[in-house]
Design a protein around this nucleic acid. Structure first.
Lengths: 145, 145
DNA sequence: TATTGTTATACTCTATAACTATA
DNA sequence: TATAGTTATAGAGTATAACAATA
């Protein structure tokens, strides 16, 4: 049995909820003028990781509804960060992919965003970072289920 | 040295960012009609944990700007979930506290909210839950710094 | 008729700037 | 003059409902 820390089992859901809400606020605030929003950045990251995807696939990945993804893609397309290419076999769909400009911007954004979070991460102990690393994977599993 | 999992150290910030954004979306969506919003719920939780606080203290706790907290409090006050009492020594400030109605609603909300998250938590292994429990504390430290 | 995606609309969340009241 | 809080305003994030195009 793993050792028990401060939070009893019954309160894990509540504690995790509060922690995630607050961290999310901080992450959203961490944005320079003219940079992409956190939501847009997440979509770019997913495209980089998975390669070209249809809008529907992207929405499913990000766990948002299709109209929400439509707006994100419109903003990214307007800035030339993505392009839509015709789907080879289905005229209703399109394949969204990063442009070279989008790829460059993503790399720069990630570096910038990490300024705040990485600095705080370095203030943690190696064990604490390990906890977050493991938690990230567990959260992904949680969200996907 | 703790064992290394999938994510290399340089990418921890990015991975954590994506995970938190997605979990936050899910948590926000997890809201029944007529229930309080996730932000309002967080404020109620903080009041329950810390007792009466001024609006400024509440904003600092939640890491939001004062005007954001003003709106949250206005919504909660309108529903009779909190009251403002005059500050004993400073006429500019007020002390915000939970009403009995607010306390009851908080308890009910927490149970309802946990329906989604707790169900998923039970699908995890004990070790995975332990990781999240520890991560919640680490995230709180991160956000407070 | 079913599926993919978009448009229209609305509500939540949050911030900055300007203002009011009290210290 | 400084501080606590509110009002005004705006932009980001997201959803549901209704629609258009294609399968």
């Amino acid at each position: 049995m793993p050792k028990t820390i401060a939070v009893p089992d019954s309160a894990l859901a509540s504690a995790l909820r509060l922690s995630v809400v607050r961290l999310n606020r901080r992450l959203r605030a961490q944005r320079a003028d003219n940079s992409v929003t956190l939501t847009q950045l997440a979509a770019l990251s997913t495209l980089k990781t998975h390669g070209p995807l249809t809008p529907g696939e992207l929405a499913a990945h990000e766990k948002v509804q299709p109209p929400s993804m439509t707006r994100v893609l419109a903003a990214l397309e307007e800035r030339g960060l993505i392009v839509r290419r015709p789907h080879p076999t289905d005229g209703r769909q399109a394949l969204v992919e990063l442009t070279p400009v989008g790829r460059d911007l993503l790399a720069r954004e990630v570096r910038m965003r990490e300024a705040w979070l990485s600095r705080r991460l370095t203030e943690l102990t190696a064990e604490e970072r390990e906890v977050l690393r493991a938690a990230s994977a567990v959260i992904d599993k949680l969200v996907s289920s």
